[in-house]
């Protein structure tokens, strides 16, 4: 079987944290708390807000790094350039364009609602 390119790569404890392996969970941990607070508690469905949460999480992990912070930054780059992220991005972009083009073509006209009197034309709001 082929070498899998994705999530498992980069094994090994090349990053040391004050607080041991548990401290390496700080970035993701902060993100989860943020996500639960923003979307669960406050009810804000803003994905860009979650981006900020993850950024804050990544910064929050910095003070715990033992040694050169450059290894931490390198881990960020290595993570971001994994094939998983790129494949998902490509798939989403294409799927998004497709879904919107279908909807623009007024497939919704097949589902038009009834008119409100006194208007006589069906009210089809296209999305």
């Amino acid at each position: 079987m082929e070498e899998e390119p994705t999530i498992e790569s980069g094994q090994g404890r090349s990053l040391d944290f004050r607080g041991g392996p548990a401290a390496s969970a700080i970035p993701i941990g902060v993100f989860i708390v943020w996500a639960v607070f923003q979307s669960g508690v406050l009810g804000i469905g803003d994905t860009s807000g979650l981006v900020v949460g993850m950024l804050v999480g990544l910064i929050a992990g910095l003070p715990f790094v033992r040694g050169d912070w450059k290894t931490y930054a390198d881990a960020i780059f290595e993570g971001m350039t994994q094939e998983v992220a790129a494949t998902a991005a490509v798939a989403w972009l294409w799927a998004g364009m497709f879904a919107n083009t279908i909807q623009a073509g007024g497939s919704s006209t097949a589902w038009c609602g009834p008119p409100t009197p006194p208007r006589s034309a069906p009210r089809c709001s296209r999305r």
Partner: peptide
Amino acid sequence: FFPLIVLTLLIVAGAQIMRQGGG
């Protein structure tokens, strides 16, 4: 999808840190 793509990149970065740190 732009925000979700950026979010994904960052989450995967956080996961990498967790992997390399042993968590």
